[in-house]
């Protein structure tokens, strides 16, 4: 699922200034609003704000509160101070789940972005062909279907009798065939591959549409200067795509850190705890082990982690022109 990402620019247009960007004029009179009392504006905002406050802000505050208690979700609770947080960072299993999420970034983000860039620049020339149009539809399919379905389909592909092993057999690699999701050394990468599959199409097409906005004369000029394809790619393509790359990285990093659906369906965190991620651990802790306080502490850590990772990416790739 494509998750929205924050824009740190408050009150400035979010559209990127491209060839088609509208240049807006700001009249000084506008700063005070449309001569409408602010009260009216607040009435317009109020419904959204109330729903948001009740179902998002309040739970956030409660998560922080719960995280300071030991509570089984049913009986009375006892004050725990920061004890739950200490446990999150010292309990090897809990901390490993955070590390696993970080490792998943390599698959959810690095592969789709790097591979997406390579593919997009290779197919840039045929971007307008009929094949590319079909591809646009096909590559979007993983974005449209529920992640649960992707998890089910891939668990089957990666099982010991699945298609992946069958294909390996055809090319004489029977030796490496295994139950990919049941093997300690390959389970996490296998989960990562599922995520990469989901996100690769989105990144490729996003980057491709960004490339189509690059002024072709830039490439011609570079050719005149004798630049080869690689040079072109590094000095023109990548810098021009800074914003798109930023978006891809942000979306995919959040998808990795907050992964739940795929892991829940394909491995339930196993074997051992090899694929346990914070999202799933929170679910288990809160609802089956009934350590609500611990679950909440992990939830707070996860929320902070996502913000800490997402903000710098936004800042680094923000269009400063």
């Amino acid at each position: 699922m494509t998750r929205p990402t924050p824009d740190s620019a408050v009150d400035s247009p979010a559209t990127r200034p491209g060839p088609a960007a509208v240049t807006r004029k700001r009249s000084p009179a506008r700063a005070g609003g449309l001569r409408t009392p602010s009260r009216v504006g607040w009435l317009f905002v109020a419904p959204a704000l109330i729903v948001y406050a009740v179902f998002v802000l309040r739970p956030i505050v409660l998560t922080v509160q719960y995280s300071l208690y030991r509570w089984d979700g049913i009986g009375p609770s006892t004050w725990a101070g920061l004890g739950n947080y200490v446990k999150v960072f010292t309990d090897p299993d809990l901390f490993a789940s955070i590390l696993n999420a970080v490792k998943l970034i390599a698959f959810f983000s690095v592969i789709p972005v790097v591979l997406g860039l390579a593919i997009a620049s290779t197919i840039r020339r045929i971007a307008a062909s009929r094949l590319a149009l079909v591809a646009r539809t096909v590559l979007f399919l993983p974005q449209v279907i529920p992640l649960v379905a992707a998890g089910i389909a891939w668990s089957w592909l990666l099982s010991s009798t699945g298609l992946v092993n069958q294909l390996l057999g055809y090319v004489g690699l029977d030796g490496v065939a295994r139950a990919w999701l049941g093997d300690f050394s390959t389970a996490l990468p296998a989960v990562g591959v599922i995520g990469a599959w989901v996100l690769l199409g989105l990144c490729t097409i996003l980057l491709l549409s960004g490339m189509s906005k690059i002024d072709p004369s830039l490439y011609e000029a570079a050719r005149m200067d004798g630049a080869n394809s690689l040079r072109e790619f590094i000095s023109i393509t990548v810098p021009s795509l800074r914003q798109e790359i930023g978006v891809c990285v942000t979306v995919t990093v959040i998808a990795a850190l907050a992964s739940f659906d795929i892991v829940y369906v394909s491995t339930q965190g196993g074997p051992g705890n090899a694929t346990m991620v914070p999202g799933l651990e929170i679910y288990y802790l809160a609802f089956s082990e009934r350590q609500v306080g611990m679950a909440s502490a992990l939830a707070v850590v996860l929320m902070l982690l996502v913000i800490l990772v997402a903000l710098p990416i936004q800042w680094l790739t923000k269009d400063r022109s």
């Binding site: 607040w42 505050v61 719960y66 509570w71």
Partner: peptide, 27 residues
């Protein structure tokens, strides 16, 4: 000030939850 008050009312009203320890309605 008026707006600040509005915001405070909306937020305060919904967030006031956080007083007192969780739990207690156990069967």
């Amino acid at each position: 000030r008026w707006n600040g008050a509005a915001l405070a009312v909306v937020m305060g009203g919904t967030l006031a939850a956080g007083c007192g320890a969780p739990g207690g309605d156990a069967p």
